[in-house]
Design a protein around this nucleic acid. Structure first.
Lengths: 210, 210
DNA sequence: TAGATTGTTAATCGATTAACAATC
DNA sequence: TAGATTGTTAATCGATTAACAATC
């Protein structure tokens, strides 16, 4: 199927739609118009309709959108019906916190393994998963069909391990290291969470107010 | 001083410039042209020059930019010379992980207090800071001139606590709860880190590759 | 001075918003 | 049928890129 390229601006808004629709669903709202949704979300109704129509016509003239149907449709677009076998590489504070974060499981991201180089961490169990030595990562990925790696290593170690992950056949890296990974294989998807960048943006905006 | 409004697109790129310049500085690079920096960062040289010129002329024709000077200038634009007294509200896994994250201190974000409602957490010490009851938050903010709150509560509790924070005079909220906070005071800055949104974006992109 | 590279204006591109015919 | 609201085209707006004169 030939699909027109969807802009990243649109893609980044999909989870927000999904979130709001999930809330509506929890509150037993059955239908919603783009206008009403636009009021709640603080975006234009036009944008909502444009965004959704990149993926198909989910609404009905004169009626609006069925909340449950649209919620499920967006979930499917986002690939949330898939299950992703996940490992966390870097079992420090952040890695362990993410391992304990149950919301990820709910969306199909299941943590199967935890890895670190620190001998003081290896052997410790977090949420029923034993932290393993980084040396074992390659075989673990293959044996357990790991799709996704969460990278919570310091920036010095991140690039090498990232390329190892690529060579072991991983499909995506959720990167928390404060560095832009340059991977050898362009088919591996990297999504960055640069926490410090976000914090600096906050700092900028606070400063502007003073 | 009347300053023209800087677009958020530009502001969000500043931390990335700051990061690359920091790396260059670590590697004792003295000067860099917009062209060379554009190669490294994977953006256009034109964009770099445009972005920087929103804040002033930092370069020199025929020479380029002095790395250290530009690094410090951007740091100042981002407000990193300021010190921010910070509290973390929600001392679960994520809250504790962030409390332990030393990179924030380096940028002037100093964690002064940790708060939670869970009696099993109250009294525990994380990185030398005792977790306090949420009831004590208001007086603590005033007594310790807290500027910033990191919100790592579940989404049910986040809106109320956020508005409490506003009423106690906080300047900014770094929000990790999966909800868009609607605050009573528009002068309080909110910066969202929606981890699940980021993960869903990754999921979408992986799915598109398959 | 000649070469390099900025700062800045102008051109292009893409994303957002407005408008409205189609239709439930 | 009349009213509401979508899907979609057209208009607008803003952001990015290209070009080049200014100048170190």
């Amino acid at each position: 199927m030939i699909q027109k390229k969807i802009s990243t601006a649109v893609i980044k808004r999909l989870p927000k739609y999904y979130r709001y629709l999930g809330d509506l669903l929890e509150n037993d709202v059955v239908r919603i118009s783009s206008k009403e949704l636009s009021n709640r979300m603080g975006v234009t109704a036009s944008q909502i309709r444009q965004d959704l129509n990149n993926f198909g016509g989910f609404g009905q003239q004169g009626y609006g959108y069925n909340v449950e149907y649209l919620y499920n449709a967006i979930g499917k677009i986002l690939g949330l019906e898939n299950k992703y076998n996940t490992i966390i590489v870097g079992a420090g504070n952040l890695g362990q916190a993410l391992a304990n974060y149950t919301n990820f499981d709910k969306r199909g991201f299941e943590v199967k393994g935890l890895f670190d180089v620190n001998p003081r961490l290896i052997g410790i169990t977090v949420r029923g998963i034993e932290i393993k030595d980084l040396d074992e990562m390659g075989s673990f990925i293959k044996e357990n069909s790991i799709d996704l790696a969460i990278l919570t290593l310091p920036k010095q170690k991140a690039p090498k391990v990232a390329n190892d992950l690529v060579s072991y056949g991983i499909k995506g890296i959720w990167n928390f290291a404060p560095i832009d990974l340059k991977l050898s294989n362009k088919n591996v998807i990297v999504e960055n969470v640069h926490l410090l960048d976000s914090l600096m943006t906050l700092s900028y905006n606070i400063k502007e107010r003073i």
